[in-house]
Design a protein around this nucleic acid. Sequence first.
RNA 1: GCCCCUGUGGCGGAAUGGUAGACGCGAACGACUCAAAAUCGUUUGCCGCAAGGCGUGCCCGUUCGAGUCGGGCCAGGGGCACCA
Length: 895
Amino acid sequence: MGRPGREVRTDFPHRRQADKDSGRAGVACQLNPPSSTSSPLDKTLPAARGANMTAERFDPASADQRWQRAWDEAQSFRADDTSAKPRSYVLEMFPYPSGRIHIGHVRNYTMGDVLARAKKMQGYEVLHPMGWDAFGMPAENAAMEKGVHPGGWTRDNIANMKAQLKRLGFALDWSRELATCDPEYYGHEQALFLDLYAAGLVYRKESAVNWDPVDMTVLANEQVIDGRGWRSGALVEKRKLNQWFLKITQFADDLLAGLGSLDKWPEKVRLMQENWIGKSQGLRCTFRFPGSAEGVEVFTTRPDTLFGASFVAIAADHPLAQQMAETVPELAEFIADCKRGGTTAAELETAEKKGFNTGLSAEHPLKPSWHLPVYVANFVLMDYGTGAVFGCPAHDQRDLDFARKYELPVTRVVADGDETGSTFDGNEAYTGPGRIVNSEWLDGMDVESAKAAVIARAAHEGWGEGTTVWRLRDWGVSRQRYWGTPIPFIHCGTCGVVPVPKDQLPVTLPEDVSFDVPGNPLLRHPTWKHVDCPQCGGKAERETDTLDTFVDSSWYFLRFASQPADKPFDPEVIRRWLPVEQYIGGIEHAILHLLYARFWTRALAHIGLIDVKEPFGSLFTQGMVTHETYSRIDPANGQPVYFSPADIERGADSAVLKADGAPVEIGRVIKMSKSKKNVVDPDDIIAQYGADAVRWFMLSDSPPERDLPWSEAGIEGCARFVQRLWRLFGQYDPAATGEDKALDRKRDQTVQAAGQDIASLGFNKAVARIYELTGAVEKAAPSASRSAAIRVLLLLAAPMMPHLAEEAWAAIGGEGLVADAAWPPVDPALLVEDEVTIAIQVLGKLRDTITVPKGLPREEIEALALASDKVQRALDGKAVKKVIVVPDRLVNLVA
RNA sequence: GCCCCUGUGGCGGAAUGGUAGACGCGAACGACUCAAAAUCGUUUGCCGCAAGGCGUGCCCGUUCGAGUCGGGCCAGGGGCACCA
């Protein structure tokens, strides 16, 4: 059982138990069992015993841990699949276990945590899980650099980061923790992959990849920098390899249409996905070679401009160009020249349009007697459309640049306002709307009608058809790497590509692998890949590619919701939790992760495994945490040397290095990064200020979608506020008597508004309201109202500063844990003011304000306004021509 | 090049077309203290002694009234890109 290098599992459904029984961690990172539950005899809250009700200061160093343990022991945040309550699934994008959490994680998870805790208080059954996106390159890099095993490295990192998250007191259901590198997880993923294969959504195709000849591995496009491998620096080659693909294009239309229903997603993300999917509708048609059945097939979105054509251009790697190059050395040279061109944005922007006249000509499809020259052109892309275009210079800038250079005809076919002449002057193409001109039977139509007319005729005459072209490509998921999900297929000389039978899943990674030479360890492992064919029993080889890690994160939110041992998830339970009510993460995942997850949701629905349309109902992309930089110019080389904030003494508007007391330059506030040393370590600040102050800082001031500038002064202010609340909570007096109507009103208004702010993730506004109520309570004289307000304030603060809240809750004799307490109710009658302050304007300028009973009739307000000295002075004897009264708000006197 | 977002005090930022600057940070002054920290109080958009005037990147417009709506610019940030 679990012997390294074992090829095929035969007992997947039962393996989980078996492995735990044997105590083996397995090859990958098995997670710790849930922490032991408290003794049933221990009904009192253990942490409460440590709470010091009379302490003048709240001591996070002791309180944080006590309450974290109390929540663990009470399993306060365990989600109940069978609960009858309304449900809320709050999810933050799970982290890659790099080793340490960074401040961005703290911000992200604090936001989700406040929402989850508030929802729980408001009566929802909340699912708020956490796990690890644990496969990927950094683990292999660590293996290469430090000689450690990727599995061990990852497991250690997870343990560290889990401890860090615990120190922040997040309300997470740790019983659902998962790691994608756990065979239990990726085995189910393999099963899903086989299901998609059976449904025809997975296929193999020969495809060009970026190959690093030094590291002997495939690189993602992002890992190729200026044509060189990011690690090795070697010139990257294009290689043809058999690759596995997921048929995401089958859902292109639906993925695009679905964006319309995502009204709780940022407009920006929807636009980015829309652009990425890139739907273009147009005409595909053939320009025949005279007297031949052969021709060049082109795609255009502007069939209306067909009469403005003046050339045909094909891509350098178009098969026709390749074929001709064999016999025409000048063309071969030109093609080679095209390939040498840079691919960066700036180079493309400035690259000159160049072409090579093949000497061929092609018939215009609408007028066979009209022959157009055929060029090979450097601006035509083989991998978009058909790899060939017709050039209409008057109405396409690239075509115009090209036509001017090679002195080709430029004919206007769309009127630009009054300009209808066939001769097109200037060097700026007209791409706007207009009537079709100089186009025979199309003349007089608008652009859209002309497009339809040409497509209809093409279809009728058989030389072309209306078609849709997508920018979106099928998703290549093969990675020639070790630390990923093995693709569950076997290559047999007799039977071909054979899926691993499901009862043999998971296909686990071998543990005894080496990283001392480049290349894929799975490929050179002595035994792992050698297996018998499941079909014919003959000798066969395992697929040694592993899946792109984006596959792992494309369905983890389903596994969080339902974790049966014998299948990836239970559809019935999925139906209860999904879609995720609120998903929170970084904008960097706007396209790939979020698009892939939407695709998987559709693919799994397509094969009947789930009944979910969109995985994430509401999406929120949070801003970065930034910090100013501290530097000095190194006189030796003129380069800046950066200093860590920890080594800096920050004054009001200057900063000095602690080591030498000499000043340093205070630089721009930018994203925290190791190279600029403007980072703060979550552990350090938690140790220094306590988890609640850190959490409070994360929520204060900046709106959550914007960048949050970290500052020493800011966190100190937060830590002070934690103590200020503690002192106020200490003034709670259950025996106090007397009513303070204004405070009651303020209290309920704050509950109402803060609740709405949290629901809409306006944490900075909720924070401001809590400050306001705090100030109001502090100023109020003792009364029953004041005590009630203190209690409410504690409950409002609980989602944000849970440790402080628990400590104070225990101190004031609250029942159970504040984590289980109910959100304070509001009295609707108290939400409306009985007095209002009305602004009095003269000619739209504020001149005075009056405080009157709410609902005072217009005439009385008007009379009071006119009675004001300040108003009379502003009127300066002029007659009032018109009076605008907005009841309970303002009066505007127009003189 | 195309598309999107953002521009408000010293700083982070509030503000259903209706009192711009809530709240926080910072700063100043005061109280407490032998002193400091902590805490508490007052002040804090700009000009002006005041009355008052000016003020949400700039210019126009709509409106009784514009930070907010429309048009045109400018600046910063981001995304996409020889996509036919």
